[in-house]
């Protein structure tokens, strides 16, 4: 097993483990958030292994640095307690859903080896770096790149409208 592969296994295990602990942690929302951060960071490591450097950095910056912080922030701000969330109905349906999802994932995993080619394309110079991806963003993907600004504006306005304390 090469160093890269063992790194991958390490981070994959870390990601799955912390993801599970996020979902299964029933007591503590902040701990869930922290688990999520660990997942994110391990995924960033996997991205680096996949030569996606820019994505890896942005993963940490945006997910780790902004999104999860925001989660934690809200948890602290609202001081949410567990009994704020009453037990739900339709437990049977949910159990069924879970079983279905698990089954589907297993099925997908079984299908994967046949569906994917064995060979991998040769990577161009600078693949996944900020120059490569950035150039793509500003040329071929200029439209989505620019359009994202409007999306962010709407999120900005929306978040302010919804969370603003005073109504005037």
């Amino acid at each position: 097993m090469s160093a890269e592969l063992s790194l991958f296994y390490f981070f994959a295990a870390l990601a799955v483990g912390s993801a599970l602990s996020m979902v299964l942690n029933l007591r503590n929302t902040v701990a869930s958030a922290m688990s999520l951060v660990i997942t994110m960071v391990s995924l960033a490591a996997v991205y680096v292994l996949m030569e996606a450097h820019l994505v890896a950095v942005l993963q940490i910056m945006v997910y780790g640095g902004a999104i999860v912080v925001l989660f934690v922030f809200v948890v602290m701000l609202l001081n949410l307690r567990q009994d704020d969330f009453p037990p739900g109905r339709q437990r049977g349906a949910k159990a069924l859903g879970v079983v279905l999802v698990v089954f589907a994932v297993i099925k997908l995993l079984a299908l994967l080896p046949a569906a994917l080619p064995d060979t991998v394309a040769a990577l161009p110079e600078g693949f996944g770096g900020y120059r490569d991806v950035g150039t793509a963003l500003f040329t071929r993907f200029i439209l989505p790149f620019e359009a994202t600004s409007l999306l962010l504006l709407s999120a900005l306005v929306g978040a302010v409208v919804l969370a603003k304390r005073r109504l005037d």
Binding site: V37, I60, G64, G65, A66
Partner: peptide, 8 residues
């Protein structure tokens, strides 16, 4: 990236 982790 590291700076953003610092908040934790």
């Amino acid at each position: 990236a590291v700076g953003s982790i610092a908040a934790y």
